[in-house]
Write a protein that binds this DNA or RNA. Structure first.
Lengths: 191, 191
DNA sequence: ATGGTTTTTGAATCAGAGGTCAAATATGTG
DNA sequence: CACATATTTGACCTCTGATTCAAAAACCAT
């Protein structure tokens, strides 16, 4: 019963996520979002309720995709330090190689809405915590493998790395690749 | 000749800076800016030309004030590590104690306009470089004082610290004071 | 095919943004 | 005092943003 949906909701959210990622929450108009999703403005509101709710869906999608990618990347072969270094470099290199520097949606959202929008703040916090746990687990494995000094506190180091990642993604908006790469190497001295 | 200015331009820029700092560039309307500056919209445009130009002035003011404060703070007595730790803690504590978390205008601008607005990008880069130089100078002094291991590369460490500071100011929008303080301690292990 | 139901769409709405302007106001000069 | 010059102001203008809505379209069941 009823007219069937003409578009894939997940796909539409994914397209909207790209727009939010590139232009920020306030910087993304319903018209842009609808066009990117390939639907009319009305359909967008019918399906998602409001721009803010659509953004929530986009954040969730970003979180899920990011966690999946991070998990896979960190479990690839190589020493802990090398793997984490490769991870940090990849994060910034993706940005440098992209046609437009857009950084990280979570970091961007933390700055744009952190402290102002409770839901968005919580969503970003969850995403960061998820990545922190993945990094901590990788460091823990490194300790077991004798890869990382036993004295290192994995959770603490992981939290520090997340701060560093946030800083790197900000810095990559302003400075060149070499400067950022050098900062990565300095940051990893503690491992 | 001519009617004399009824307001202090520097003071008006300082008030506008607060608005931009709190609400971002796009998030600050001419009406708000004019009201904060205590003048009419017309006067604002007459004196500054455009919102964008006013923002440029605000960025300059922020840079100058920040550099002055940093220089003074870092040259206070105490070991290098303790002074820098106190500096980082102060930066985030100011935010935690403020009625509204607004982070750092330079970091906010890097994310909002970095890569999109050449002038703003350059202004932020200048501000970051200025702070980097001040930190490097302090570390260098620490090396002379025997405070910091001679093997430490002051410039490199300073650049890394700036990345960390950016990350801290992002993180402070999302997490609590204790988490951020812990990250500071971990970051300073290299000194 | 008629109905009941859900989706789609673009037009319409209302508010606010960024900016301009003419008129009013306040000086120094002749 | 009248003039040239510079500043102030709020009304005004145009454009866009976020959202709503009525009507058309597409399906299933009878």
């Amino acid at each position: 019963m009823g007219r069937p949906k003409q578009f894939d909701e997940e796909a539409a959210v994914a397209r909207a996520m790209e727009v939010f990622w590139t232009n920020g929450y306030a910087g993304s108009s319903p018209a842009e979002l609808a066009e990117a999703a390939g639907i009319g403005k009305g359909s967008l509101y019918h399906a998602f309720g409001s721009k803010r709710e659509l953004f929530g869906r986009a954040l969730d999608t970003y979180d899920r995709a990011g966690a999946e990618f991070t998990e896979e990347f960190l479990s690839a072969p190589g020493s802990t330090k090398e793997r984490i270094r490769a991870y940090l470099r990849l994060l910034v290199d993706v940005d440098f190689d992209a046609p437009v520097r857009r950084g990280c949606l979570a970091v961007n959202t933390a700055l744009e809405l952190g402290g102002r929008d409770e839901g968005a703040t919580a969503a970003v916090r969850r995403a960061v915590e998820r990545s922190t746990d993945l990094l901590a687990a990788r460091i823990e494995r490194g300790k077991l493998a004798g890869d990382v000094p036993a004295a290192v506190d994995a959770a603490e180091q992981a939290r520090f790395l997340m701060v560093t990642i946030a800083g790197l993604r900000v810095t990559a908006r302003i400075f060149d690749r070499e400067t950022v790469h050098a900062a990565i190497d300095t940051a990893l001295a503690g491992l």
